[in-house]
Simulated scan of single mutants.
Amino acid sequence: MHGPVTAAWLLVALCAATGAYCLLRMRSVVAEQRRAAGGEALMGFGMAVMAVPAAAFTPPRWAWPVYAAVFGAAALRTLWAARTAPHHLHHLVGASAMVYMSVAMAAAPAGAHHAHGGVGVPLLTGALLVYFAGYVLLAGARLVPAAVAVAGAGADGGSVAWGDRPELARACRLSMGIGMVAMLLVL
């Protein structure tokens, strides 16, 4: 990805930290939460790697089709899961956006600062930006009541395992949504 170097490194740190926490969430006793956390860890680490500034590391041309294949497989897996659990549709959009960004970067001429080549590409980027910006606003609005509820529950001595804290899972999803907006803006 291309853009300001400091912002890119902050995005790398945010996405890597999110991916690391999602790995911790995979230790949950709830099977559905473990599956969701695994997909979110893949997204977090994939976004971190993709956000490394081009000045620090420029992946070889063959890396972008590999990224597209990995996230294409993740999108297919998520599509399969979404047939019985519609809440997976957001993960499908996220994985598809990663495929789109990988294809756009693969199609960009070497050394180009923008991958937009055709008329349809900016339109799709704009649609994804609108979706993820809306998601970030909605996730942020949902995060506050979850955090307040957990803070109130903690006052009576109850403790929840780190992998099962709903407000932290929502914060991770919010972080990845913010990261996706940032990545789409500099695409």
Rank of each mutant, 00 (worst) to 15 (best):
Asp164Met: 03
Pro109Met: 06
Leu79Ser: 10
Ala104Val: 08
Ala97Thr: 07
Met101Glu: 00
Val121Asn: 06
Ala133His: 04
Leu79Cys: 15
Val148Ile: 12
Phe132Ile: 10
Met98Gln: 06
Ala97Asn: 03
Gly118Tyr: 12
Ala85Phe: 09
Val93Thr: 05
Gly117Asp: 02
Ala110Gln: 09
His87Ile: 09
Val148Gly: 04
Ala155Cys: 12
Ala139Phe: 01
Gly157Tyr: 10
Ala75Asp: 08
Trp80Gln: 15
Trp162Cys: 03
Ala153Cys: 06
Ala161Lys: 07
Pro86Gln: 01
Gly111Glu: 07
Gly163Asn: 04
Gly157Arg: 10
Val144Cys: 11
Met101His: 04
Gly152Leu: 08
His87Met: 02
Ala115Gly: 11
Tyr131Phe: 13
Ala74Asp: 15
Ala95Asn: 13
Gly117Tyr: 00
His88Lys: 00
Val93Glu: 01
Met101Leu: 11
Ala169Lys: 00
Pro109Ile: 03
Val103Asn: 00
Met98Thr: 06
Ala107Gly: 07
Glu167Lys: 01
Ala169Met: 13
Thr84Ile: 05
Val150Cys: 05
Val160Ile: 13
Arg83His: 06
Gly134Lys: 09
Gly154Trp: 11
Ala139Cys: 02
Tyr100Asn: 03
Asp156Val: 09
Leu129Gln: 08
Leu79Pro: 02
Arg165Leu: 09
Gly154Cys: 13
Pro109Asp: 11
Val93Cys: 06
Gly157Ser: 14
Gly154Asp: 14
Ala147Arg: 10
Ala147Met: 14
Arg83Lys: 14
Ala104Tyr: 02
His88Trp: 15
Leu89Asn: 03
Tyr135Leu: 14
Glu167Met: 00
Pro109Trp: 03
Arg77Trp: 15
Gly154Ser: 11
Gly157Lys: 03
Asp164Cys: 04
Pro86Arg: 08
Leu79Ile: 12
Pro86Met: 03
Ala151Asn: 09
Leu92Tyr: 06
Ala147Lys: 03
Val93Ile: 12
Gly140Thr: 04
Gly120Thr: 05
His91Asp: 08
Ala147Gly: 07
Gly157Pro: 05
Ala69Lys: 01
Ala81Tyr: 10
Ala108Lys: 10
Glu167Gly: 03
His113Gln: 15
Ala73Asn: 06
Arg83Phe: 02
Gly118Met: 07
Met98Ala: 08
His91Trp: 07
Ala82Arg: 10
Ala147Ser: 14
Ala95Glu: 06
Val136Ala: 15
Gly154Ala: 14
Arg77Val: 13
Ala74His: 13
Ala155His: 11
Cys172Ser: 09
Ala149Thr: 11
Ser102Asn: 04
